[in-house]
Every structure is written in C-alpha cells, then in structure tokens.
Amino acid sequence: MPGAIVQEPEGEYFHAPWEPRVMAMVVAMGPTGMSNIDMNRAARETLPNYRDLSYYEIWLAALEKLALQKGVLGDTPPPPKQVLHAETAIATIKKGFSASRPASAPARFSIGDRVITTAAPPDHHTRLPAYARGKQGVIAQVHGVHVFPDTNARALGESPQWLYTVAFAAQELWGERAPAPHSVISIDAFEPYLEPA
C-alpha cells in the first residue's frame, strides 16, 4: 500500500518557479496540433522514470519527447494549426476541446445492463485501469460518443466510441475483505472495453 497523503491548502498550485511555465506551455501546445491529449498521456505514462518524477517534471519530459518525435524542433517543423496569443488564449481555453463526436451506430448497452470488462491488457495506450479488468459491473450512465483514446494516442484516428459509466460493487473489485464493503466504484469505459455479462 503506498504511503500517506500530504494535504495542501487551497490556492497552492505550484512549488517551483518553472512549474507554471510548463503548465502554460502544455496548455498552449494543445491548439497547435502537435499532439492530442491522448498522445500526451501516453507519452507521460511511458516515460521510463515516470514513478520517480514529480507531476510537472512528467509534463516537461513528455513535452520534450513529443516535440522531438513530431519534428517540431527540427529544421522544417510542420506548421502549427493554431498559435495562442495573449489576446486569444483565454477565449480558446474557455471554449474548450470537446471529446464528443456524432454517433454512427446505436449504443450497444443501456442503463442497468450487466457488463464484463476486457480481461487482458492491450500492448498499447488504453484507459481501462488494471483493477477493473475482467470485472462485472452495471451500466450507470451513457455519455454519448467520445474520441477513443486507444486509437487517438497512436495517431490511428479518433475512431469515436460510446462511453459509459460502469459501476462495480467493492467486493467485485477487492474481494470479500474489501476495506469499505458497501462502497461502489465506477469508471468511465468505452464500448470496446465491454461485453454483456
């Protein structure tokens, strides 16, 4: 079991003078199209020393890695889609970057359906956590169709999929000795992660 949780007062966002710069660079690089949010997460999670780095060290190392991979630092960088300037930066982030996409097929599951999650982890980026693999749960919410991280992270396209909240009983995930036996844990799972139970 990992260690204690160190609490922090509200409004204490940064712990070194370079951290806000890294946060802002990562936010500003979004609209340039260099990489998408799933590529960013995959780049962070595959850093060899991920567990030894602080949060913003991870962001920095992943940004360096992607900038090199995508040729942004080379002699002929691909032109950015959109560059944030002082006048446009806030309006752009307030508009946000929706992950919703139009549906091309009806949803396979409805609220209340019993499902079982995929057991075997794939050999690429995915968003089904290990603790919720091969487990039975119930569809609790249907969120519409969203960009599929498993393909988007690998530059294989958005391949949008239905997204569901799937709720699990604590005992299903942690066994009869679950520390909080009456609790319910949910994940947000894409349709390809699920089969009817």
Binding site: W18, A24, V27, A28, L63, P80, V83, L84, I90
Partner: peptide
C-alpha cells in the same frame, strides 16, 4: 524549461505573452 520555451518560440509554436496570460 527555458531552453524548451525558447525553441518552441523560435519555431513559431508558442507566444511567451500567451503563457503569461495563461499563468
């Protein structure tokens, strides 16, 4: 961090003034 910001600025991906506003 400074080196990366300088490079991304030089390559036309980042406007440092926008970073100030975001922060």
């Amino acid at each position: 961090v400074r080196a990366l910001e300088a490079l991304l600025t030089e390559k036309g991906y980042i406007d440092p003034a926008a970073l100030d506003v975001l922060i």
